[in-house]
């Protein structure tokens, strides 16, 4: 059994995997170790395989799939990729397909990664940044997988010349208006800024959320189905949910108007012809 070290990036793994493949090292002969899990290893320079020259042909689509699946945080991250790669290169194309045990795990990971990217796009919440931060907007997010660098490009399309950053417990990204900078270890200061409460700015949104909800149609099960509670911690509106459900279920009201408007004085309008 031979131990190979990966610097935690797909590019790093790809280089090591290429060497291993060229030397004909079969998956069962290898043990993959993430540098992050044993810091300092790289300093001793013991990871390198003797360099081989040569070329390998790998379908471009497979490479994309491997890169996507590499963002999945989970057991056997690199060994699964290597097994699939090895098998495909040795003629077993089904190794990347859903019918195959390795293939279905690969596809499952790809799906989970895409889903998490979608969660970032939908549920990240930016807030105005303090002046010293030299960005306009910042956000805190806790992604399940290593999607940040890749999935946050969406926001450079969306936010134009706004400068922004997203802090997470692990990594962080910063868009300076021109380029995206990815930090594998999120600066502590970003984490502090991004977790500052912003209650004033959120008040309008919370008012909107409460009002656009139709209490006559309350349906907590449908809510949970679409918005699993693990995502609630990102959403300033989620603190309102229990109260809104409670009011809708147990209130005396059976119609759709937002309860806060109930006892507000109203205004009837005269029919148009009666005016003149």
């Amino acid at each position: 059994m031979r131990t190979l070290y990966v610097d935690g990036t797909f590019a790093g793994w790809r280089e090591v995997a290429r060497q291993a493949l060229l030397q004909g090292l079969a998956p069962h002969q290898l043990h993959w170790q993430d540098a992050d899990s044993c810091p300092g290893l790289f300093d001793h320079g013991q990871a390198a395989l003797p360099a081989s020259t040569g070329h390998l042909r790998v379908p471009a689509q497979l490479l994309q799939q491997l890169e996507c699946a590499a963002r999945y945080r989970g057991e056997a991250r690199w060994s699964l990729l290597y097994r699939v790669l090895w098998r495909v290169v040795h003629g077993q194309r089904s190794a990347a397909l859903a019918g195959d045990p390795d293939g279905s795990e690969l596809q499952r990971r790809i799906k989970a990664v895409r889903r998490e990217a979608h969660h970032l796009h939908a549920f990240v919440r930016f807030q105005p940044a303090p002046a010293v931060s030299e960005v306009d907007l910042l956000a805190w997010f806790e992604p399940r997988h290593d999607i940040l660098a890749w999935a946050s490009r969406h926001f450079s399309e969306r936010l134009g010349q706004q400068r922004w950053l997203i802090a997470t417990p692990a990594d962080g990204v910063h868009w300076d208006g021109q380029r995206l900078h990815h930090h594998r270890h999120c600066p502590r200061q970003w984490q502090v800024w991004a977790t500052q409460p912003d209650s004033e700015g959120q008040a309008l949104w919370q008012a909107y959320y409460s009002s656009t909800f139709n209490p006559a149609r309350v349906n907590p099960r449908a809510l949970k189905q679409h918005l699993p509670s693990r995502l609630w911690r990102h959403l300033p509106e989620s603190t309102l949910i229990p109260q809104l459900i409670n009011q809708a279920r147990h209130g005396a009201q059976h119609h759709s108007q937002a309860p806060v408007l109930l006892r507000r004085p109203g205004k009837r309008i005269a029919p148009p012809d009666s005016k003149d």
């Binding site: 939908a122 936010l159 134009g160 706004q162 149609r217 449908a222 679409h226």
Partner: peptide, 25 residues
């Protein structure tokens, strides 16, 4: 896309649900 441009906003054909209200919408 607004990447690198004045202004704000992008669309790409797909819709995004940014939240759900307790009626499941």
């Amino acid at each position: 896309s607004s990447k690198g441009k004045a202004g704000l906003g992008s669309t790409n054909g797909a819709g995004i649900c940014h939240s759900f209200t307790p009626d499941g919408r």
